[in-house]
Design a protein around this nucleic acid. Structure first.
Lengths: 125, 125
DNA sequence: TTATTTGCAAACGGTTTGCCGATTA
DNA sequence: TAATCGGCAAACCGTTTGCAAATAA
């Protein structure tokens, strides 16, 4: 278990407001509640946040999510459908594969993104 | 060298118009002129098409690109920055790697997307 | 107190769509 | 000729931003 989002904010000098604390809470909880594969988009985040404090505007969600991204807390993914999704996880396995592909083609990898659209197999242990 | 876009259209019963022929031409040429790594977005496509026929509207580009995508001619990628880009190439190598990753995690792959942000190495043969 | 943040609503940028005249097969 | 297409402008949708009031440090 690593640092909390609040701790990272304090270390980086990002001011903590009630709104940001609530958004941070929702982000941490979404991982626990929905499992590793939960990459909420802004609308979904807004819905979850609204349950805790209905006065928080969607503009604040957008601003906070961008702030957290710049602070290295979140990763943004531009998926199909035009909606960006956010997550805190890095998959080491995929990173290694990408490095291999990149090197094969003569590139030094500076950033990456992999999207897999899959159907869960039923007979998996 | 495989089928031309026009041939695919005829086979699939997609009506050919002057506009679509020109857009198809630009798509094929972009591959030759700009190399394999040219994935034009709609704006770029519109610019290139306009040089050949300035009366073609951007709405037609959008509709044609969607039509070609549905006909299996193009692949759409939603890259960072909100603009979709299009290409006709499939990288077998990357597909194999993805299948491996997917199977490891117990998924049957139904679609994919890989983005690599790289810097070209200078000392590569 | 001072710089920063928030909510609101308007603006923005890429994409889609309704209408209707033009075009394809 | 019948069905489809294309141009235009308006609508749409996710995201950003200017402003004035509220708040963190």
């Amino acid at each position: 278990m690593s640092e909390t989002i609040e701790q990272i904010c304090q270390k980086k000098g990002v001011k903590l407001t009630d709104q940001r604390r609530i958004i941070a809470k929702v982000l941490s909880e979404s991982k626990e509640v929905y499992g590793e594969s939960d990459h909420p988009d802004v609308d979904e985040l807004y819905k979850r946040v609204s349950k805790l404090d209905s006065r928080i505007s969607i503009a604040t969600i957008y601003r906070t999510v961008k702030l957290f991204e710049e602070s290295g807390i979140l990763t943004k993914h531009d998926f199909k459908g035009g909606k960006a999704r956010y997550e805190t996880i890095v998959d080491e396995e995929i990173e290694k594969l990408q490095k291999k592909v990149a090197e094969k083609y003569g590139y030094k990898l500076v950033d990456h993104k992999l999207e897999l659209y899959g159907i869960k197999k039923l007979d998996e242990k």
